[in-house]
Design a protein around this nucleic acid. Structure first.
Lengths: 103, 103
DNA sequence: TTGACATGACACCAAATGGTGTCCTATAGT
DNA sequence: ACTATAGGACACCATTTGGTGTCATGTCAA
């Protein structure tokens, strides 16, 4: 479907995830109220998040209620945790090490 | 400058970071050899990564050597770790909880 | 039953994105 | 000195992206 890294790259979409994490479940019009853009734009962002599996929705009457599914974020978590070893060590130390190879 | 989430959204750019993590330091033409695209495209991706602070470069003779700076990834790590609490609990349980509100 | 509300489904548009090729300069190597 | 290599700096292009507005449909409430 859609890459989870890509889905999360947009600040509006991260904002949507934050709201859904906080509120549990919200209808579209409530979400729209929190952003400086129209309903169509927010709806599109939610579609992207749905394609990435990060949100799910259910229809209740005339509303569509959206809620978070955080599971796909495991992928990002796993990827980024690999790099922890590199930021733990001082950057300058790495630089010196690389420069020192010539001596 | 450039959003680190955005910089990391592209699979080619994640590939570049992986290569630099492994090799320590590589010149542009070595990086180009590993991807199915031209020098200009790879160079542009490296520029994006530089704008996000994820790579740095130094000129040695006629080569430009690129190396990783993983520090900005802390931002992503921090953001995503907030969501751990949501994927730890079973998704079905959350759903049942939300549906149960009406009874 | 009538009118307001919620949203899906388009069509549309400007700007950003991810590629390309070309030209130019600097450096290495013979 | 000459030639090949490394790569910066463009100009260019198709596609995607992130927004808009409009129309049609289903639902709620008086």
């Amino acid at each position: 479907m859609r890459d989870v890294y890509d889905a999360v790259a947009d600040p509006t979409r991260r904002g949507l995830l934050d709201l859904l994490a906080q509120a549990g479940e919200l209808p579209l019009h409530d979400l729209v109220d929190r952003f400086p853009m129209g309903r169509t734009a927010v709806s599109k962002h939610l579609t992207v998040l749905k394609e990435a599996g990060l949100v799910e929705d259910r229809k209740v009457g005339r509303e569509t209620l959206y809620h978070l599914n955080a599971a796909p974020l495991r992928e990002i978590r796993g990827w980024v945790s690999f790099y922890e070893q590199f930021w733990e060590q001082r950057i300058e130390r790495l630089k010196d090490l690389l420069e020192g190879e010539r001596e």
